[in-house]
Every structure is written in structure tokens, then in C-alpha cells.
């Protein structure tokens, strides 16, 4: 009998002293792999799917344009708008915006600027092609339509 009693005395708790370390590890992982959101996106972003994605090599050369229906419809209306940094711009302002973005880069790399367009699925081509025309005029001809990876059959 005494033998059994001894076994019942053993501790049932799981040691949790390593838990903080595990959580810290997760924390550091997320801190390293993510970037803090630089701009508040004020347009809807339902990004379309595609299969043939390519990766951008030099992130420093990339400038982002967000196009879609404004999130605050009562304030901005339901027409799709272009957002650059933190403001809404018109297609004709794109040239100026590209010049400003180019000024941020090194002189030798200015021609390599890439514009990543995050366009909502429901946006109509008319607006997007107006932006593309302005980009051509501004000589920022490297373009990337940001898309999500679609599973290939």
C-alpha cells in the first residue's frame, strides 16, 4: 500500500517556466518579419488572385499606389480613388507624385523606380489606365500589380 501512496504524491503540474521564452521567440519572429504599417489605407483593398507572381528584389525602389473605393463612403463618395502616401490624388497629380518619389532615391537609381499598384478587384480599368498613362509620361515604367498567390491546379 505504501508504495502506491508514494506515486500519488508526485506533482501533476506541467512546468511553465519556459513559456515566456517561447512567447518571446514568437514575438521576435513577428518583429523581424513584419513592417510597421506606414500609411493608413483609406480605400478598400480586395486584392485579386493570380498564379504567375514575381517577387520584387529591391524594396527600397518601390513606391505604392492604392486604388479602390474609399472606406468612408459618406465622406469621400463611392467612386474609386487613388491613394498615394496618406492623401487621395487625381490621375493628373501622379506625375508630380512620381517626381517626389524619385527625389527620395539615389540619383543613379531613379530610373529603376518600381510602382506597385494595389488595386481593388472591383475597380474599373478606366481609372487604372489613366494612372498608367501618367506613369508613362513620368517615365516610371516598371509596374507591379500586387496580387495574391492563387493555388494552381
Amino acid at each position: 500500500m505504501s508504495k502506491f501512496k508514494k506515486k500519488a504524491d508526485t506533482k501533476q503540474e506541467i512546468p511553465t517556466s519556459a513559456l515566456p521564452d517561447i512567447i518571446f521567440m514568437l514575438l521576435f519572429f513577428f518583429m523581424v518579419t513584419t513592417v510597421l504599417r506606414e500609411v493608413t489605407i483609406n480605400v478598400k483593398q480586395r486584392i485579386p488572385d493570380a498564379t504567375q507572381l514575381r517577387k520584387l528584389q529591391r524594396k527600397s525602389l518601390v513606391s505604392y499606389l492604392y486604388i479602390g473605393e474609399p472606406k468612408k463612403v459618406e465622406q469621400w463618395g463611392s467612386e474609386p480613388r487613388i491613394q498615394a502616401n496618406d492623401v487621395f490624388i487625381e490621375p493628373k497629380d501622379v506625375t508630380l507624385w512620381v517626381t517626389q518619389e524619385k527625389d527620395k532615391l539615389d540619383e543613379v537609381e531613379r530610373d529603376q523606380i518600381t510602382i506597385a499598384m494595389k488595386v481593388d478587384k472591383e475597380t474599373q480599368r478606366g481609372l487604372v489606365s489613366d494612372v498608367e498613362l501618367e506613369l508613362r509620361k513620368a517615365n516610371a515604367r516598371k509596374l507591379l500589380y500586387t496580387t495574391l498567390q492563387e493555388m494552381e491546379q
Partner: peptide, 28 residues
Amino acid sequence: AFLLLIFFLVTTTIANDRGLSLQLPPDP
């Protein structure tokens, strides 16, 4: 640590810089 982790999860985005790349023609 959990609190910190959740804070970072909420305030950050995983950078998505993949997509369809295209070269536009020159200025018309």
C-alpha cells in the same frame, strides 16, 4: 510577452511585394 505579441500582430502587416510585373511602353 503575450500582450506584446498581440500588439505586434495587430499593428503590423506582412509585407506583400509579390505580383504581376509589367513594363509600360514609353510616353505616347
